[in-house]
Design a protein around this nucleic acid. Sequence first.
DNA 1: ATGGTAGCGTAGCTA
Length: 263
Amino acid sequence: MRVATWNINSVRLRLDLIERLVHAKHPDILCFQETKVIDDSFPRNAFAAMGYPHQHFNGMKSYNGVAILSRLPFKATGVERWQGRDDCRHVHVTLEDNREIHCLYVPAGGDIPDPVANPKFAHKLGFLDEITAWWRTRNKDGAPRILVGDMNIAPLENDVWSHKQLLDVVSHTPIEVEKITAMLQAGNWIDVARHFVPPEEKLYSWWSYRSTDWNAANKGRRLDHIWVTPPLAEQLQNFEIIREARGWLPKPSDHVPVLVDLK
DNA sequence: ATGGTAGCGTAGCTA
């Protein structure tokens, strides 16, 4: 079973790039963040035509939005809300074999890494605290669970192009690293990327639009993650970051697809 | 220290 996650930055604008991913990699399950579309306007027919008839999404106008599109049927679906908001940042499904798939979009947190001066950063930290407590309880059940999405945090030194230069940059500050590490540990999660790739090796899944030559500069960050619970460890077969998708024309997302293969 | 680009929706917010 191949699961792909991609911050698509408008699902309607990039249906052609999604089709390109589907033809190249044939994922069984597609998880998207920043779909930027209300549910009534979600391109459900386009995904059915691509071979994904089983769909679960939660979106709003202009911002956020998450979706799971699947070749495999669901026996249950859910939507979670955090920090008392209807922000459309978390949907999940249960497959018939009981594996659960969660698609998550953590708040970006704005530009200033100070929760007092910047309410968006405070929201990000509160969001992480709340969902960490939830996983601490929920993952005690020993269920086979997959969590994918844009966590908007690059935790390790080699998850960014320059650890020193990004210490004060939202996405790599010590407080964010501390909180995403707490979330990982509270749920007893396995970081699939680092299960396959040693921490000494640079890994990125996002390159800013605000750069003249993303490929040459290569100032990336690993913001997009795939985590699994211990029962799925023995099923892990392959992990891949589709770096070349950052150059897919005419309009690439600033994030690239990340995928995992499970037995 | 600054400003650089993109999407939505048609101004300004969010990333």
